[in-house]
Amino acid sequence: MLLIRCPWCGPRDETEFRCGGEAHVARPPDPQALDDAAWAEYVFIRSNPKGWFRERWVHAAGCRRWFNAERHTVTHEIRRTYSKE
């Protein structure tokens, strides 16, 4: 079980959190302007690297705030959590 450092609450057990997938994938400001392929890319396609990965987490059973984490997908090490870029 990971020990995750919530930027507001400090280190807590992984069971208090929920992972929200890849970070820094912004919702397109005007979805209608996108063609089908570009929209599908936004909705369905995420990267899946072996190594460092920036992902979103929410402290669901705590302060309920979203933040980002840099996690290594092989070692599971979280080297940084941050609320703003």
Partner: peptide, 11 residues
């Protein structure tokens, strides 16, 4: 509620 919060906070 989670979903509303997610959009409010992140988007």
């Amino acid at each position: 509620l989670d979903w509303l919060e997610e959009y409010l906070q992140t988007e």
